[in-house]
Amino acid sequence: MSEAVQAPASQYDIARIMGALYGDGILGLKGAFSREWAQQLGEDIAVLYEDALKRPGGAVGRGPKRHYVEIHPEDIRGFVELVGHPWVQTVCEAVLGLDYKIVEIGFDVPNPGAQDQPWHRDFPAPEDTIKGRRLNSLAFNVTTVDVEPDMGPFEIAPGTQWDDASQFEHEMFPPKSFYPRYQERAEQKMPKMGDISVRSALTIHRGTANHSNKSRPVLVLGVDAPGANNHERHDLQVTQKFHDALPEQVKQHLLCRIVAELEPISQKHSIEGLMMGEA
């Protein structure tokens, strides 16, 4: 069972990182950021979510009362602190290699009334994983609230990133006959403000029902190894001014378009099997 770990900022255990992501498929770091930083992130997401709901195609349904919104790096004040965090950089280098690329940033919002999602992967397993037994992408998650059991916690079935998907619908959605295995393994995650986690998006997971009167926003950062091509599902953009001000260490890992003016994002990563009912 992979628990969130606390490690000194200057040194992280590479073997433990590799073992967790190739084993359970998920790893966390408690207190990576201050609660104030997480609160600021939550404020930015609240504004962006309200705007996205007003814009046609701005928010994509991921199930009843549940949305995903892809955003621009400069839409949040803490982007550089996030991608420049030494644990984030160490994890990316360890699993994806020195030439890793940031290809996506967005957020999920399970609102009050959100229902259990079907167990799923976020996309079909690539050849690198099926034949090469290698993970070539990672998803980082940062909560903006203290997650409680009634708020629809994220649930994951550790070790299932290696499962054969030949019987899955669209190579992403396992048949219901497989559910008992996932439910037997299932772990619900209860992160607090300031915590961060990283997982393989191939590890079978789901959002659970939100029985509370509060939403549970979570930031998503997608990172690829060379050749993974998940950027084709996304449209990472930055303005020239923002790009020029980025630290070189961050700049070299951004796979993005440099634009004169930010354009509304045309969402390319809708997950058909999660768009059930009214979002």
Rank of each mutant, 00 (worst) to 15 (best):
G207C: 05
G42T: 07
E187L: 15
Q188Y: 04
F140I: 11
R16T: 10
I258C: 10
E3A: 08
I45D: 08
A157L: 08
D163S: 06
I204E: 00
S212H: 01
P180E: 04
Q89V: 15
P174M: 05
K30V: 01
D244H: 13
A245K: 09
H205V: 08
K214M: 09
D244I: 09
K65M: 13
I71R: 00
V142Y: 06
M172P: 11
V142K: 02
G31I: 00
D51M: 09
H85D: 09
I204N: 00
E278T: 03
K192N: 07
I271A: 07
I204S: 10
L219R: 01
E232L: 15
V218N: 11
S200F: 06
D122N: 07
V47D: 13
E263Y: 07
P112M: 05
S34Y: 03
Y182V: 05
E127W: 15
V95Y: 00
G84W: 05
R133F: 06
R206A: 05
Y49V: 05
Y12L: 11
G25Y: 15
G194V: 00
V147R: 10
H72N: 02
K268W: 07
M275H: 14
S270I: 13
A52Y: 03
W162K: 10
I14C: 11
T160N: 01
A245R: 09
V259N: 03
H85W: 01
D108C: 03
I26P: 09
V218W: 04
G31M: 06
D116L: 04
A38H: 01
H231K: 11
P118R: 05
A228H: 00
H67R: 06
R35P: 04
V80P: 11
E184A: 04
R35Y: 03
F173S: 01
G23H: 13
Q6D: 13
R121Q: 04
A228P: 05
P56K: 10
R206C: 11
Q167E: 14
T90R: 15
